[in-house]
């Protein structure tokens, strides 16, 4: 364990040499997490809209349910999903276990609660009169909901980025339903775990550095998210 420094040096050599295996893992990670967040946003946005804008019995319970799911340990979800996707499980006939599709679906499920919660907060923060305003200016019900969603754009972006952050940094789901298969379903976190196990610490460190860089960049994005809308405005400004 005295050779940490040497490991770090080798890690940087790998990073700057553009090692194919290394960047293959990075690309896979970004792709899986990206598609997962896209799917989660597709499911989560309408649910968040209902929970934020409609009134119905048991709404508080549903919201609490999603809020408490935010903290679900990824291994627990991974285990549940393994049992679901396993050939002997209810969705086993699909044969998706140990494929990228399983990781993407799993991560999408993992981040859906966090996406929903943040989007709800963002929509609820919008002045409720905006909905009426859009309607009286001639918007249909759907156009009016879209107007509200647009007002909540910052929070919505924040929710997406936070979801991406969680997806990229999780281990349990990718390991248990992805199987950490070299070149197919290994992502940054599972690959770090593999190379640490094998004692190939330079590779593990290089992957760890890249993961940290990505997570750090995402957090910078969160800060910048507030400004994104302003840029949008300038770009689409009429005159």
């Amino acid at each position: 364990m005295v050779d940490i420094l040497g490991g770090i040096v080798q890690a940087f050599q790998l990073i700057f040499a553009g090692d194919v295996t290394l960047y293959g893992i990075v690309c896979r990670t970004l792709l899986f997490s990206g598609v997962a967040v896209l799917l989660a946003a597709l499911w989560g946005t309408p649910i968040a809209m209902v929970l934020a804008l409609k009134h119905f019995r048991g709404k508080a319970i549903v919201k609490t349910f999603f809020n408490s799911l935010i903290g679900i340990p990824t291994v627990v979800l991974g285990l549940i999903l393994y049992l679901v996707f396993s050939k002997s499980g209810p969705l086993g006939f699909l044969g998706l276990l140990y494929t990228p599709a399983a990781i993407i679906l799993g991560e999408a499920i993992l981040v859906t609660p966090i996406l929903i919660s943040i989007t709800i907060t963002a929509i609820e923060a919008v002045d409720p009169e905006v909905l009426l305003l859009a309607k009286t200016l001639g918007a249909s019900d759907s156009q009016a909901s879209m107007a509200v969603l647009k007002e909540a754009l910052n929070g919505f972006l924040l929710g997406n980025i936070a979801s991406f952050n969680r997806a990229i940094a999780e281990l349990g789901v990718a390991l248990l339903v992805g199987g950490n298969i070299v070149g197919l379903t290994d992502v940054l976190t599972t690959a770090i775990s593999r190379y640490t196990q094998r004692g190939e610490l330079d590779f593990a460190i290089a992957l760890g550095i890249l993961l940290l860089v990505i997570v750090f960049a995402i957090n910078l994005l969160i800060i910048a998210a507030r400004k994104v809308k302003i840029i949008f405005e300038l770009w689409r400004s009429p005159q």
């Binding site: 905006v130 009426l132 305003l133 859009a134 001639g138 107007a147 007002e151 809308k229």
Partner: peptide, 11 residues
């Protein structure tokens, strides 16, 4: 169309 008492705007 209606103008509300409290002026509301899109951001």
């Amino acid at each position: 169309t209606m103008v509300f008492q409290k002026a509301t705007f899109f951001d």
